[in-house]
C-alpha cells in the first residue's frame, strides 16, 4: 500500500472577479494530521471542495494518492473519507440503511459490512441510534453520523471540513479522540478548523490561509517557534495568588528570560530562550522560591496569537 498523499498544484478558484483561492501549492504526505486554518472566507472549504471534486478549479489541479480528482473523481476518492459542509443524509433512512448504501457504493465486502458499520457507529457513540431515522436527529447527532460515514471504509486519506461543527464540548473531545485514533492507524488527515485548541491538540502540521493565499505550512512546533522570535513561551501556574508582585521582575531578570508577565494573580507567562535546559533551570529556580508553582505548560493561546498576527498582517 502506498503512502497516503494529497497534493495541490497551483490550485486557483475565481468566482467572477473574486479570487477565492490563489495558486495554492501544498503537498501532504504520510500518516499525520494537518490542520487547515483561516478566517471565514479565506478559501478553506473551497480548497476541500476542489479536493472532493464538488467544485472545479479555475486553474491547477489536485491529487489524492497521486490520482487527479478533476480527471478521475471516482478513483481519486476511492481511498478517501470526505466530510464537507455538514451534509444531510436522506431523512427517511436510518444510519444503518445509509451506511449500507455507502458500503454498496464503495464496494465494502458484505462479510465485513455489519462489523464495520457497528464499529464506526460505536466510535461516534451512535450505535444505539443505528435504526432510528436520521430525520429525527439533532445537528450534532447528524454530524457524528457524517463522521462515521466518512470512516466506514477505513480510508487512508480523511478530509474533514470543520468536523466539530454543531457538536457539544463532549462531542468535540470525541472528534479529537477519533482523529488521534486515525493517526495511530497511519492515516493522513487534512482538517479545516476554527478551533485552534483542537488543532493544537491533534494536528502535527498546520497551514494558514487568508484571502486565498497560503501564509505558511509547517509542523506545529516549527510554527510556534518560528513566530516566537526564537523564544519559547510557557505559562507558570501557581497554587495561590502571587503575594509579592515584585517577584515577576525577578523572573524577568533570570538568565535567558526575555519577558515575564503576570497574566492572572496565579499565572505568569514567561518568554525565554535556551531550549529544554533553560526551561528546566527556570522551573527549578521558580520552585526554589516557594511561590506555589504547580504547573509549567505551553500557553493555549500560542497558536491563536500567531494566527491573529498573521491574518492581521494579510488584511
Amino acid at each position: 500500500m502506498s503512502t497516503p498523499s494529497i497534493e495541490m498544484r497551483k490550485l486557483t478558484k475565481r468566482f467572477g472577479a473574486f479570487t477565492a483561492l490563489d495558486h495554492l501549492d501544498m503537498n501532504l504526505e504520510g500518516a499525520k494530521c494537518v490542520g487547515f486554518l483561516g478566517p471565514n472566507g479565506a478559501g478553506k472549504t473551497t480548497t476541500l471542495k476542489m479536493l472532493a471534486d464538488m467544485i472545479f478549479p479555475t486553474e491547477g489541479e489536485c491529487f489524492i494518492n497521486g490520482i487527479s480528482a478533476q480527471q478521475s473523481r471516482k478513483r481519486a476518492l476511492a481511498d478517501a473519507g470526505v466530510l464537507i459542509e455538514s451534509p444531510e443524509i436522506y431523512p427517511s433512512l436510518t444510519p444503518r440503511q445509509a451506511f449500507n448504501m455507502v458500503a454498496d457504493l464503495r464496494g465494502v465486502p458484505t462479510a465485513e459490512r455489519k462489523g464495520r458499520i457497528e464499529e464506526v457507529l460505536t466510535e461516534v457513540k451512535m450505535l444505539e441510534w443505528a435504526d432510528e431515522r436520521v430525520g429525527r436527529f439533532s445537528k450534532g447527532m447528524k454530524q457524528r453520523i457524517n463522521i462515521a460515514a466518512a470512516l466506514l471504509h477505513d480510508p487512508g486519506v480523511v478530509i474533514l471540513d470543520e468536523p466539530a461543527t454543531g457538536l457539544d464540548p463532549r462531542g468535540m473531545a470525541e472528534v479529537r479522540d477519533i482523529v488521534r485514533n486515525l493517526k495511530k492507524r497511519n492515516r493522513l488527515i487534512f482538517m479545516s478548523s476554527h478551533i485552534l485548541q483542537e488543532v493544537t491538540d491533534v494536528c502535527d502540521e498546520v497551514a494558514l490561509i487568508n484571502k486565498g493565499k497560503l501564509l505558511f505550512y509547517d509542523t506545529l512546533p516549527n510554527v510556534l517557534s518560528r513566530f516566537a522570535d526564537g523564544h519559547a513561551t510557557v505559562d507558570v501556574g501557581l497554587a495561590r495568588p502571587l503575594e509579592d508582585a515584585g517577584r515577576v521582575k525577578d523572573v524577568a531578570a533570570l538568565p535567558g528570560v526575555a519577558t515575564a508577565t503576570l497574566l492572572e494573580p496565579n499565572r505568569i507567562r514567561v518568554k525565554f530562550s535556551g531550549g529544554v535546559e533553560a526551561q528546566e533551570r527556570l522551573l527549578e529556580t521558580l520552585v526554589s522560591w516557594h511561590i506555589g508553582v504547580k504547573s509549567l505548560s505551553e500557553p493555549e493561546s500560542a497558536l491563536e496569537e500567531i494566527y491573529l498576527q498573521q491574518v492581521a498582517r494579510g488584511d
Binding site: V82, L83, P87, E88, A149
Partner: peptide
C-alpha cells in the same frame, strides 16, 4: 437545496 448532494458527492461515484 437539502444538502444531501454533499453526502453523495463525497463518495467515489461519477456525477
Amino acid at each position: 437545496q437539502n444538502k444531501t448532494g454533499y453526502f453523495l458527492m463525497g463518495l467515489p461515484i461519477r456525477r
